[in-house]
Design a protein around this nucleic acid. Structure first.
Lengths: 191, 191
DNA sequence: GCTTGATTACACCGATCTGTGTAGATAGAT
DNA sequence: ATCTATCTACACAGATCGGTGTAATCAAGC
């Protein structure tokens, strides 16, 4: 019997630590030795679960790629909830930007797998937003969905550099203006 | 007499190459050996001009921190010109996001100097935007300026991952909507 | 001609990187 | 009790990292 009860399978333990370190310090800044040491395992064990660091990075991004939970609320509520949670994310101390955008920035030309996952994630989010605004009956869902996505990523980038606690709220206000301009109001959306 | 006429001072030659490699491949992905080899000089010469890699990175960012040229056009024209040039930047093949946001992402906790420069840059751009929208007489220049900055950084992040050729135009449309909502129209701004 | 400053080549440092090879310890299942 | 799978420690490989020390070379100015 080991001193510390593992409870979780080894793969999950590794990914927990890898996620924390990759996101907090950056992918290139964290070596596999550091991850293994932090988990408390040998480097050999890590390489028994993942074929390479790139493979571990891909698994890290895949695990961050969680679908947005289905909701019974109105599409407008769901959109506004997204912006509210965004602003809350800024408030949490460990916030370090979007892990997918960061990954693309860090890996550059190499590691095509990670690029693909990041691309798929962003397209998934755009598709989610397009679905919501389509249900609101706006004339140009594609444009509005992209614009709302732009607001989210822009607020994230601004907060990453400037740490402006108001940036989330301002992005939310801008979203409201764009929605209203597309003919969406709280009253209209409730109908 | 050397085979290749230097023409530019050594420091500029180094920075030219460092800029290209740092921006294109990433700061952490490029070593000083690579830069020196690309310039065609010895590593010793590079370190005679810059105290460290961090110092070179700082100089690279400083050189990217160019003031927006003064213009006699109307503030609204200048703002819209900014969005137009943004969309053009996406079209250029070598576009790899905002070098300042990228730097903050890549360096993480260390290299405080680079963080400061990135922060100063973003604040300078926000201040420029605030100055322009203030001249337009909007009720809340701080909010609108931040929102326009969010649109710019958001379009950059979206384009970095998704390579959507329409994202620049959609950000520009969103900017027009936000300006109009603040009471700014082409006719009103010209007055 | 001589001095001065810049640049050169090149070896070298210690640290870190990803990744592997190996042999033994451990624990659970049958 | 034995088989099997996992994890361990640890050494090591080959490359790259940022950075330094040194002696020779080269060109320009006086």
């Amino acid at each position: 019997m080991s001193l510390v009860a593992p409870k979780q399978p080894m793969k999950e333990r590794i990914l927990d630590t890898a996620d924390r370190l990759f996101y907090q310090r950056g992918i290139r800044a964290v070596g596999v030795d550091t991850i293994a040491a932090e988990v408390g395992i040998s480097k050999r064990t890590l390489y028994n679960h993942f074929p390479s660091k790139d493979g571990l990075v891909a698994a890290y991004l895949m695990r961050r790629f969680v679908p947005i939970p289905h909701s019974e609320k109105s599409p407008l509520d769901q959109i506004m909830r997204t912006f509210e949670r965004l602003a809350q994310g800024f408030a949490s101390k460990g916030f370090r930007g979007c892990p997918f955008v960061n990954a693309v920035t860090e890996i550059g030309e190499s590691d095509t797998e990670a690029r693909k996952i990041a691309l798929a994630f962003k397209e998934d989010r755009i598709a989610w937003m397009r679905d919501k605004v389509t249900k609101l009956g706006v004339p140009d869902p594609e444009t509005l969905a992209t614009q709302l996505a732009i607001l989210i990523d822009g607020a994230i980038a601004q907060d990453l550099v400037r740490r402006d606690p108001e940036v989330g709220r301002k992005a939310q206000q801008a979203a409201r203006v764009l929605l209203a301009h597309a003919g969406v109001t709280a009253a209209a959306a409730a109908s």
